[in-house]
Design a protein around this nucleic acid. Structure first.
Length: 847
RNA sequence: GGGCGCAUAGCUCAGUGGUUAGAGCGCUUGCUUCACACGCAAGAGGUCACAGGUUCAAGUCCUGUUGCGCCCACCA
């Protein structure tokens, strides 16, 4: 047995932490992932990277879906595309406000807006640094020169430009609309801040009167809203009330005349089956108010106190007013009964105060009038997996309101408008002045173009954050500012995102692209699932705080975490045990170790081998080598097809199976005979060289291909091993700049006969393994004789025996058997395999 | 209540209408200095949720039922 000298000492154990730190730095310093603009659209692969919300809660679920993007990007880069892969931060709006208020112990409403803005910018900057650090740890191959934030100047400018364009084309309008309001915090709040709360309450049955004085009992939990009552409803066809159709009822005590209407939303089983509609008790009231064009009677002020419409109850809090009104009704015998109940109410998640709906002027983008077009444009995109489009479609088809883009908040992109103090005319900012802050800047005109007066009021509202993040393709393409770039980058190639925000982010982005560009925003959508914790619910903030992604990466390495993320089919949720991630990450860790060890062995035999310009079709001539190349080519084919459908998990599965079973368990074990020389003892010097060259060249090509196939998934270890040796034969600085393996590279280096022969040798080897396993001896313990025949008469196959005869040396050396006897007939007893026609008997001495 | 998805080995999940349904983990048995015990080999383990239907043929297609998840709506 010959000993091969190594030119470089490879450490026995892989130090993933050190290696990953090294390559992370290398990629950054060498600008490996920099975007190189091209004038040819076809060469570009652009990604509309989701900007994570900067609110301090990145968890393993984010790592999960961002890693998915990176698999695709790295694959596409190796396919030769010029990659545009920017990174963004969503750092305005409510989540940022809340983060800043928490971190800095301030309240936005209690300080000047400019000061609050300063704090927001400061806090988000720190957060973004931590985010970037994590993403670099994970190995995201985005170009950190292409960074945007939804509050930066470019985003503000483009977002404001978008609004002004829509204002001009009449696609936005301003209208009074009910807004969720916290009377404790005295601010409008977003849907996202609402939490359900169980509360003890009283269900009062009170008497409304018909115009001729008959009592009609109506049940309510909010008697204080009686002065806000504008109609009553019953279910269509409810015979108890159908006689009231078209008539009016008079509200108790307040004596207001309100119409009686029919609507299917009424539940005849609940209360008395007839319900009062107030402005506004809940969202159904709002729907009715809109649908039936009802009167508006707001009785609550911004402090949560009753206003003048409540008559003698004016000035009382909602709570006090409720008690007093109930008492009054009771005294006047208008209260029939009171039932104690608990029910769920909507409350502000920060202070727990029940929310009210107040009327405010809001800006809306028209979407209801273009549902069909929006469905059609959504359909033009390719959705992966396809059923995600159905969700989009149903969402659009069932829209009931236009898109409200204004928020009565502090930190966000300002509306670029002022109003004439006299005639309320909207004064838009001039395009060249964008971005503007109307609270600080002046409109830049002397007189109102409508009434000629010269006093202007700035719009205090800011955009909903979706109004800006719906423009990420335009922001990245520098829409309206750099036509060359815009034409090349818009529409973008890919939008990756998770399925929970199809109805928001994906939808709004399609809306904006339709309105501004009459185009789709991207060609492909790749929708990831969620990472769920072991209790099978979406990972919550409290839980993610126990184990942060950074810790998991430190403990297991980024490659291992990426491998975990790569195992889940696109669009499917997955589970991770945050208490003990080992069970989810163990297989990845083993794979990394296996790759390292197999590479170490390969390196031992390749260190002094130079492939030069050897012709693969000639030099790879041993059947087993050609068998391996055949398997490799199949793997490349399957992995490529999967990747083209964004099915990275399937690609990984094929690569992993090829590497582990075909390459390690079979090829390496059998090729050792030639690599170490045990199988070359009885051949001439010339043959010896030829056989060894074939083995080494195969080893070289196969391992190098394996590294490239794994590179999108495991960027660190593949880079590490590639630099041990393979980089010497490449002009590229990084494995990530090399090309994805292709079938063409291996033309002539594989064939059907060799594939059959390889399969036959492995089949026979399995019989030896089984026989030795049954004898409870090591595969390395020498056996005297192996007799191979068939399991029954009908299965006798001469060609199979011929193949074994030809592969005899490899078989005997690998199986540690001295002599092979082939029988063209049935072998009476011996070991069999389920998958084989053969039967074998091993003759050896056993202790 | 609506939409979408899921239900396959103890667990996590693959599975194109076509032999005897697969993988990883876990389990059992055996094998260690020559890449790797974080390994190798050999095993055990399944009424493909349930009930119908279509078909020469169903884990796969259709209908219904049950359970679970996500999103949305509801909360008088």
């Amino acid at each position: 047995m010959s000993k091969v000298e190594t030119t470089q000492e490879i450490p026995k154990i892989y130090d993933a932490g050190a290696s990953e730190r090294k390559w992370r730095k290398f990629w950054e310093e060498k600008n490996i992932y920099v975007y190189e603009p091209s004038s040819n659209r076809e060469e570009i692969y652009s990604v509309d990277t989701p900007p994570p919300t900067v609110s301090g809660d990145l968890h393993i679920g984010h790592v999960f879906s961002y890693t998915h993007q990176d698999f695709i990007v790295r694959y596409k880069r190796m396919r030769g595309f010029k990659i545009f892969y920017p990174f963004g931060f969503d750092d305005n709006g409510l989540p940022t406000e809340r983060l800043v208020e928490r971190v800095k112990c301030v309240k936005a409403m209690d300080m000047p807006r400019e000061d609050f803005w300063e704090l927001c910018l400061e806090v988000s900057k720190e957060q973004e640094k931590a985010f970037k650090d994590l993403w670099q740890d994970v190995g995201l191959s985005c170009d950190w020169n292409e960074v945007y934030s939804t509050i930066d100047e470019r985003s503000r400018r483009i977002s404001q430009r978008s609004f002004l364009e829509l204002l001009k084309s009449g696609e936005v309008y301003r209208k009074e609309a009910p807004t969720l309001w916290c009377t404790e915090c005295r601010t409008a709040i977003a849907q996202a801040e609402v939490e359900d709360k169980e509360e003890a309450s009283e269900f009062h049955k009170i008497c409304f009167l018909t115009e001729d004085g008959k009592k009609v009992p109506i049940a309510t939990t909010r008697p204080e809203l009686l002065p806000a009552c504008v109609a009553v409803f019953y279910h269509p066809g409810d015979e108890r009330y159908s006689h009231l159709k078209g008539k009016y009822l008079v509200t108790p005590y307040f004596g207001l005349k309100v119409p009686v209407l029919e609507d299917a939303k009424v539940n005849p089983e609940k209360g008395t089956g007839i319900v009062m509609c107030c402005t506004f008790g809940d969202t159904v009231d709002i729907e009715w108010w809109q649908e039936y064009n009802l009167e508006t009677r707001i009785v609550v002020d911004t402090f949560g106190r009753m206003n003048e419409l409540a008559g003698e109850f004016q000035g009382f809090s909602l709570r006090d007013a409720r008690k007093r009104i109930v008492n009054t009704l009771s005294e006047q015998k208008l209260l029939i009964e009171t039932e104690r109940i608990t029910h769920t109410i909507s409350a502000h998640e920060r202070c727990g105060t029940p929310l009210e709906f107040l009327l405010n002027k809001q800006w809306f983008v028209k979407v209801l009038d273009k549902k069909d077009e929006l469905v059609r444009y959504g359909e033009k995109c390719r959705w992966y997996p396809p059923h995600m489009f159905v969700r989009y479609k149903h969402w659009v088809e069932n829209l009931r309101w236009d898109w409200c883009i204004s928020r009565q908040r502090y930190y966000g992109v300002p509306f670029p408008i002022w109003y004439c103090a006299h005639c309320d005319e909207v004064i838009p900012a001039r395009g060249e002045n964008l971005p503007v802050n109307p609270l600080r800047d002046s409109p830049g005109i002397e007189k109102c173009p409508k009434c000629g007066k010269d006093e202007f009021v700035p719009e205090k509202d800011v955009f909903d954050t979706w109004a800006t993040s719906s423009l990420t393709p335009q922001i990245n393409a520098k829409w309206g500012e750099n036509d060359d770039r815009s034409n090349i980058l818009f529409p973008m190639t890919l939008r990756p995102q998770a399925h929970d925000i199809i109805r928001t982010w994906a939808f709004y982005t399609i809306v904006k692209a339709y309105l501004h560009n009459k185009d789709i925003p991207w060609y492909d959508l790749m929708i990831s699932g969620h990472a769920l914790d072991s209790s099978r619910t979406k990972i919550s903030k409290s839980k993610s705080e126990t184990v942060k992604p950074k810790q998991i990466i430190e403990q297991f390495s980024a490659d291992v975490v990426r491998h975990w993320a790569g195992q889940t089919r696109l669009g499917t949720d997955t589970f991770i045990n945050l208490q003990d991630p080992t069970e989810n990450l163990a297989s990845g860790k083993r794979l990394i170790t296996k790759i390292y060890n197999a590479s170490k062995l390969s390196h031992l035999h390749l260190a002094d081998f130079t492939p030069g310009n050897l012709d693969l079709s000639q030099e790879i001539n041993h059947p087993l080598d050609r068998w391996l190349i055949g398997k490799l080519v199949q793997t490349i084919d399957k992995a490529t097809k999967a990747f083209e459908q964004y099915e990275f998990a399937e690609a990984l599965e094929h690569v992993e199976a090829f590497f582990w079973q075909d390459f390690c368990d079979n090829f390496l074990e059998i090729a050792k005979g030639r690599l170490y020389g045990d199988a070359l003892l009885q051949v001439t010097e010339n043959q010896r060289n030829k056989l060894q060259t074939s083995a080494k060249l195969t080893l070289f090509k196969a391992l190098e291909s394996i590294l490239r196939l794994f590179a999108p998934f495991l960027p660190f270890i593949t880079e590490e091993i590639w630099h041990w040796y393979f980089h010497r034969f490449s002009e590229k600085a990084s494995i990530h700049l090399t090309t994805w393996p292709s079938q063409e590279e291996f033309n002539g280096a594989y064939d059907k006969d060799s594939s059959e022969m390889g399969d036959s040798i492995i089949e026979a080897l399995s019989l030896i393994r089984k026989a030795k396993s049954e004898l409870k001896v090591s595969i390395k313990k020498p056996a005297d004789r192996l007799i191979i025949g068939f399991a029954n008469e009908s299965q006798i196959d001469r060609a199979l025996l011929n193949r074994l005869e030809q592969g005899k040396i490899d078989l005997l050396v690998t199986g540690n058997v001295k002599e092979l006897v082939l029988i063209e007939g049935v072998l009476e007893d011996g070991v069999e395999l389920e998958t084989s026609r053969l039967r074998a008997r091993l003759e050896m001495e056993v202790d």
